[in-house]
Amino acid sequence: MKPRLPLAVVSGYLGAGKTTLINRLLSEPHGLRLLVMVNDFGAINIDADLLAEAGDDTMTLTNGCVCCTMGADLYMAIGDVLDRDTRPDYLVIEASGIADPARIAQVAMAEPDLVYGGIATVVDGQTYASLVADPLIGAQIERQTSVADLVLISKLDHPDPALTLRLGVQSRAAVVDLAERNALAPLLFGGAPRTIPMVKGQAHAPYVTWSSSSPIQLDHEALLAKLNTRPAGLFRFKGFVAGPSGRGWEVHCVGPAVSVKPISQAQGTKVVGIGLEGQINPEQIENWWLD
């Protein structure tokens, strides 16, 4: 059986910086083969050289369905990727500027062959306040942040604590200023960064990582109960958990979202956790998991 394909959605209004974010991800040394699916109005600006260098791939989609909001093409294209002989390591969907990213991301909750990689919404720090006040489009833009598992603020020279607070309250998600991070792959894809690229003048490694291998066995109900008490600040938690009678679970938590899917043969319980430095430490994760 082919491994499940993780799917992450990058959303944000026109000009928020979705494509810039994806180009940044492509240039990071995360070692993953990405497939980027673009579903938007306007020119596609994904950097072809970056794609080629990493052996990554891109697909451009249209939204040509009779029914105005169904967007069937996108899902059919996801089906095509799942049917490939060799699946990529990660599927990143750049949603259209007015799409509700939750409608897309839900497919990773429903489809057995996908795993939920979360919704990252990019917010233009300079224009957000006026955009969400727009009587025509404001509510739709606000929805993109309120369903996000990760909010990324772009285009600010200096962090704006008031905006960060506002977005955090609205979304229950981690809010990160893109200028303050030098590696984004851990946030978007989980997994500890292999190397933290050093950017001049910014030498911090802002992630806390933790992993555990243990004989723990949990049934579905007990696992969900456990996940519901996970510490705040544990941004990503994923891995395999053994269940009773040889079966088990594949677990993916991103921000507030929890996805648990059955696996037929568990190979013991192996999980990893990632958080943002200053918000959590490995002991806290360890204490929660082994409690």
Partner: peptide
């Protein structure tokens, strides 16, 4: 919605 219908349609 499509996200839930997709696994069956596929």
């Amino acid at each position: 919605e499509m996200a839930a219908m997709f696994p069956v349609m596929r």
